[in-house]
Every structure is written in C-alpha cells, then in structure tokens.
Simulated assay, not measured.
Amino acid sequence: MITLGWTLVILLFVVGMIGAVYPVLPGVLAIYGAFFIYGWLISFEPFGFGFWIIQSLIVIIIMVADYAVGALGVKKFGGSKAAIIGSTIGLIIGPFVIPAFGILIGPFLGAVIGEIIIGTSWKKAISAGVGSVLGFFASSAVKIALQLAMIIIFLIWVF
C-alpha cells in the first residue's frame, strides 16, 4: 500500500505542476488531493491542524491569485472587462484548438476579440492581448512557486 500511495502522490504532484501552466489540468487541486491520498493509503498521522491550515491557505491564495494576476496583466495594458473575459475563455479553449501554442495564442486572441467586440481600437486591443499573455506568465510563475512550497511543506511534515 505504501508503494501505491507514494506512486499516486508523485503522479498527482507531477500533474499539479504541469497544471500550473496548462490550465486544463487540475493544478493545485491535484497537489492538495495528493495529501489525502497519502493519508488514506499511508497515514494521516503526520498532518496536524497547522498543516491543513497552511496548505488550505496556499490553495485559496493560488486560486485568487490565478485570476487576479491574469486580470491585472490585462488591466495594466489598458484592457477592459471584455478583454479579461475573452482572455479567460481563450486560455481554456486555446490549448484544445491549437495544441502546441494555444496556451499562449488563446488568451491573446481572446483578449483582442473581447476588446474588438466592444469597439476598442486595434492598437489598444493588441495591447490588451499582450497584457493577457504577460499576465498568464506572471500567474504561472506565482502558481509554480506556491505549488512547490506546498510540496516542500508536505515533505517536511512527512519526513
């Protein structure tokens, strides 16, 4: 059971880290789920109240920051709410439509199309698109750092 537990935990950690940059994967929830898999298959004993509070706070911060940092990138480059919505839609749909580059092209096009729909000039729409891509990179960097912190905290608590 220990081997199965660790295999699933490591697999969920890998899926979670890939999910930090590829939004169709569960990301932080996969990492959080790994803690429960460890508990159910190995032991919940190492995890106290403090562990769950710290990890839950990090999950909440990641979820809020994921949206906020991306939206901030669009806003910083002059984008409107339409660009933020378009960018979010593009981020979800892009990887399916253009598998290799959709992760970057999707949010860009989504923001540009969102701005064009509300009558914004092409120049401002392109700027909002650039902001959405930069916001995606910044959001991914924050998620990677915090998710690595979650894994390190887990390992410290277990060992």
Rank of each mutant, 00 (worst) to 15 (best):
L91M: 06
S140Y: 15
Y67I: 05
F108R: 00
L29F: 15
K143M: 02
L41C: 08
A71W: 15
A82P: 01
G94W: 13
A145Q: 08
K124A: 06
I54E: 14
K123Q: 12
I152K: 13
A30F: 11
T3L: 15
G131E: 12
K124V: 08
V14L: 15
F96E: 02
I10W: 09
M150A: 03
S139E: 08
G27H: 04
G106S: 03
W6R: 13
A65H: 08
Y38H: 15
I84C: 06
Y38R: 14
V24I: 14
G90E: 05
I92N: 11
I53T: 11
G19A: 07
I152M: 06
I105Y: 01
I54T: 10
L12H: 13
I60F: 03
T3R: 04
G119P: 00
I118S: 07
F77K: 00
F108T: 03
K81T: 00
L29V: 09
I53P: 10
P95L: 09
L8T: 13
F96Y: 05
V14A: 14
L41H: 02
F49Y: 15
L72M: 12
I151C: 06
L91T: 04
Y22R: 14
G48C: 11
G48S: 10
G70V: 01
L104Y: 00
F154C: 01
P23M: 11
I54V: 15
G110C: 03
P95T: 02
P99A: 01
K123P: 12
I113R: 09
I92G: 14
K81I: 07
A111T: 07
S127T: 09
V158E: 01
A82I: 05
F49W: 15
G5S: 12
I42C: 10
S56N: 00
K124E: 08
G33K: 07
A83W: 05
T3Q: 02
F77I: 10
G33W: 14
I118V: 03
I98V: 13
F101H: 11
I2S: 14
F101E: 12
I85H: 06
A145K: 07
Y38D: 11
I103N: 09
L11F: 15
I10T: 02
I62W: 04
V69Q: 12
W6N: 12
I37R: 13
G106T: 04
L4N: 01
A111I: 05
V15S: 05
A125P: 02
L72R: 09
P23V: 12
F137P: 08
I153Q: 00
M1K: 13
V142N: 06
A141T: 02
G27R: 06
L134D: 03
L146D: 00
P23R: 08
I93Y: 09
T3S: 05
A149I: 04
